[in-house]
Design a protein around this nucleic acid. Sequence first.
DNA 1: CGTCTGACGGTAA
DNA 2: ATTACCGCCAGAC
Length: 106
Amino acid sequence: MPDPKDPQDLRRQRVLATIDSIPRGRVATYGGVAEEAGLPGHARYVARVLRELPPGQFLPWHRVVGAGGHIRTQGQTATRQARLLRAEGIAVKGGRVDLAGHGEPW
DNA sequence: CGTCTGACGGTAA
DNA sequence: ATTACCGCCAGAC
């Protein structure tokens, strides 16, 4: 286990905790998650954390989308994300979700 | 240190 | 709608 006092790890934990707090049926943007985690301007960092997330983790990673509701994942991952979103009642059309109806809970 | 790379965000064409 | 840039920033090398 990584040292929980390591500031690097704390930062990541805050991001993960924020994503974990996204309710079912809602989505959040990378930038929104970053801001909520106290890291304004670090949208790319959020993406990195998710990208390197070990598979099988319980985390609603699929609820994180790009600005404007765009799905930014690629290939099979994008397919899975769309399926998971639709499974909780979020429509995905043209690689995009309706932010107006399912936007960030913050 | 300098460079390169992005599951980003925004703008311009 | 697409493509090309640009600004940004943590990491890897």
